[in-house]
Amino acid sequence: MSSFLNQTTPDEFSNCSIRAIQEKLTEVLNSERNCIQEPRNTEVEIAVCGNGILEPGEQCDCGYDEISCNDPCCYPASISQADRDYNTTGALPCSTNQRKRCVNPPGLVYGIYIPLVFILIASILVIVLLKNDWSRDKTLFRHITHGNIKIVARKRQGVNSLQSSEQEAGLSS
């Protein structure tokens, strides 16, 4: 084709060039590395933020604006200026936000953390109260100390035998 070129641009390809182009296109279309056509048997999914459907690439999708969004931990497709000002690091559409109630949900805080802390503190207080009462006048243990059950402190066997032998020695002299 270059031999036919003069100063003008040709309007048509030669028969030889057309055959070469057709062969190359056929080769590319039939190869594994086909970049001209869509891949066969694959669906292309496009994430649409604000349609209420969680799609690939979205952390959440609660709707288009704050009125239609029922999830306080999800940014809608249209983010208000107040949210943008509050979260300057990344208020992105269809993403979760970093509010305290979203990071630590109330169900977790009021359902697990606070009851566990209450039980732990109450247990410690009861243990300290019972220990102090036991070491003093045992008023909380009257049902044990004033009933048929008596608490008797035992002396060690070695100490008792030593005292009894001293007493016997003192009595005989």
Rank of each mutant, 00 (worst) to 15 (best):
A20L: 08
S95H: 12
C16Q: 13
Y64V: 04
L140P: 05
S68I: 05
L5T: 03
Q59G: 06
G158L: 06
R154C: 03
A20E: 11
P76F: 12
P76N: 09
Y86S: 12
V44A: 05
R99H: 12
V128I: 14
E58Q: 14
R19V: 05
T89V: 06
Q163K: 15
P10R: 09
G147I: 06
S161Y: 15
D137T: 10
V126R: 14
C74Y: 12
G107R: 07
N41W: 10
V48C: 05
I151G: 03
G50L: 02
L125G: 04
N97K: 11
V28D: 09
S172P: 03
Q157N: 06
Q81T: 11
K150A: 02
E58C: 08
I79P: 12
R142D: 10
E27T: 04
Y113W: 15
S3T: 09
E27F: 09
A77S: 12
E12Q: 05
V28L: 14
Y110M: 04
D85P: 03
S95Y: 13
G147T: 13
C73L: 06
P56S: 08
D85F: 13
D11E: 10
E32I: 00
L25N: 09
Y113N: 01
P39W: 09
C94A: 01
L92V: 12
C74Q: 06
R142E: 08
